[in-house]
Amino acid sequence: MTNNAISPAGKTYLFVHGAWHGAWCWDKVIPLVQAKGHTAIAIELPGHGQDIERTSEVSLKDYVNAVMKTANEQEGEVLLVGHSMAGMVISQAAEKLGSKKVSALIYLDAFLPRNGESLFALVEATLKQLSPNSRKPNLVENLITAEDHQTNWVNPELAAQIFYHDCSEADKKFALTRLSKEPIAPLATPVQLTEEVYGVIPKYFILCTESQDMDKTFLSTHVPCEKVYTLHSSHSPFFSMPEKLAEIIDEISLSIPIFSV
């Protein structure tokens, strides 16, 4: 017999950090989401955190495999939350994991791709869509590329303004001492997505309206989403307004029913 009532059980969230960052960026959000009755896990992507010896060798496949490994270790469905660059990662991971494993995708001021697009291609498309009144895209012009073209990083003198302008001094210091190099290969690799899998997984976008890295309004409409939320924050609401971010994440969970048999 099938019971179509929504289960009160909490959801399982896997949080994936963006470029140059690490699992540490979710430190304030994880306990807030857990306090709402959910399981919340921050994933450290290869080449980040303590694993920086082989950063230049890391591929998009390595990122995706790390997310898939953690997802498959969880019982039942998971929701993937990707910040910034990680929008590409969770999209490809969802395609591999399937709609029975991934119940929703949440893009936090993130790159939301179509089949065959790379992050670099989406950056170019986004810049072309910016109007004269759009916020100045500070990130692209402040990237420093290694001589071997295998990694890049953000100009340390401007990283605080680009990512954390509305964050506390303590959070700025915490983050700036942890930013790392980013492998370029994952940024240049096109994702391979299908309408049959990726296309049917519900997507939600959280647009940070004061983000100084790049105006992502275009990206929030690039692929159909169930809902687009807005936060009056920098690109790093996990520091500047973690409570509001956790509330949105919890609200999304309530819109995704769990059916029991």
Rank of each mutant, 00 (worst) to 15 (best):
C225I: 05
D27L: 12
L122I: 07
I256W: 02
K28R: 14
I6Q: 05
G18N: 12
R54M: 09
S103V: 01
T194E: 08
Y107E: 11
P156W: 10
W24E: 06
P237G: 09
A121D: 12
K216Q: 15
T151H: 02
L45F: 08
Y164F: 12
T39A: 08
A71D: 02
V200S: 10
P137N: 03
G37N: 04
E251R: 13
L60H: 03
T230M: 15
K181Y: 03
V197A: 11
P113R: 10
K96W: 09
F239H: 11
S255R: 10
T145Q: 00
E73A: 14
V200K: 05
L254Y: 04
K216A: 15
I258W: 01
I252S: 05
V200C: 12
L32F: 13
S118W: 09
K244G: 09
G76E: 01
C167N: 08
N72Q: 15
R54C: 14
A94M: 02
S99V: 02
K36Y: 11
Q212K: 15
F111T: 02
H232V: 10
L254W: 10
V200G: 07
V29H: 07
R54T: 05
T2N: 13
S253P: 01
F205Q: 08
Y13R: 07
K101T: 05
T70R: 08
K61F: 04
P113L: 09
Y229K: 12
A93Q: 04
Q192K: 06
K69G: 04
A93S: 10
M88R: 08
G22Q: 13
I201Y: 00
S59E: 05
Y198I: 01
G82Y: 07
A146Y: 08
E117L: 07
V228N: 12
R178Q: 09
R178K: 14
L127G: 00
N4V: 12
M85L: 03
E157W: 00
G37L: 15
I249S: 03
M1V: 12
L119Q: 09
T230S: 14
Q34L: 14
E57Q: 11
L32Q: 13
R178N: 04
K128N: 13
N65A: 14
T194K: 04
L45R: 03
G98Q: 01
L97E: 01
P224S: 11
L176W: 11
G76I: 03
V200D: 07
D215M: 11
F259M: 11
S131V: 08
S91D: 00
S220E: 13
L207M: 04
K61S: 04
D171Q: 03
L231G: 12
Y164A: 01
N72V: 06
G82L: 13
L97A: 10
N3Q: 12
A146E: 15
K244H: 04
K136F: 14
M1Q: 08
L187N: 14
S240G: 05
V16C: 09
L119P: 00
E75S: 12
V67F: 01
E157H: 00
P190I: 07
P257A: 07
